[in-house]
């Protein structure tokens, strides 16, 4: 069964406080809802305003979702080292971990892991704060958990109006980044 056919599919977005993981979770959940699916999104962060490992857990399904937290994730997006150390082991069998390239050297290669330059791409776009959106674009391009159309609509609806264009650009670049990778989603 392809990863995308798992129902429910469990997704964990992780990073450090300030990287927009909470917003990313809300956007992806809204995209799933716009696709007509059932979804739950829970979040966890520490008391600090910045830094610290944070996560957003999503369960997307065609059936009613009882327990909303993710124990083993089919898909993990990881934007920070602290989040990798804390959450990488929660990857389910046959799952896919998509992490920022900055971690590649230290964490090493694994069949289940794909490194992509989210932060570097966001910096190229002129705003590091779009790292989360670049990451979401790549995650959706690789996994097809939601449609690109719904994701774009959710981004537009959830970011500040003056930043909608920038974020949609980040989404497009992220999507192309993900689409460029040949991953076998087993």
């Amino acid at each position: 069964m392809r990863l995308v056919d798992r129902d429910p599919i469990r997704i964990r977005l992780t990073g450090r406080g300030g990287q927009g993981i909470m917003l990313g979770g809300a956007i992806l959940a809204e995209a799933a809802m716009r696709d007509g699916l059932l979804v739950s999104e829970t979040q966890e962060y520490g008391p600090e305003a910045r830094l610290g490992a944070t996560k957003a857990d999503l369960i997307i399904s065609t059936r009613e979702i009882a327990y909303p937290e993710v124990e083993k994730a089919d898909l993990i997006l990881c934007l920070s080292r602290a989040a990798y150390l804390r959450y990488a082991q929660s990857l389910a069998e046959g799952g896919l971990l998509i992490a920022d390239s900055s971690m590649a050297e230290e964490m090493g290669e694994a069949e289940s892991t794909v490194y992509l330059p989210f932060r570097a791409t966001a910096l190229e776009l002129g705003n590091e704060l779009t790292t989360n959106i670049v990451g979401l674009g790549a995650l959706v391009a690789m996994s097809e958990v939601v449609t690109r159309f719904s994701l774009a609509a959710a981004v537009t609806g959830r970011v500040k109006r003056e930043l909608a264009e920038l974020n949609n650009k980040a989404l497009e670049v992220g999507f192309n980044l993900g689409a460029s990778v040949q991953v076998r989603l087993a």
Binding site: G25, A26, M33, V39, E41, T42, Q43, P68
Partner: peptide
């Protein structure tokens, strides 16, 4: 805390 911050359609 979880119910308060959980999103569902």
């Amino acid at each position: 805390a979880v119910i308060s911050h959980m999103r569902e359609p």
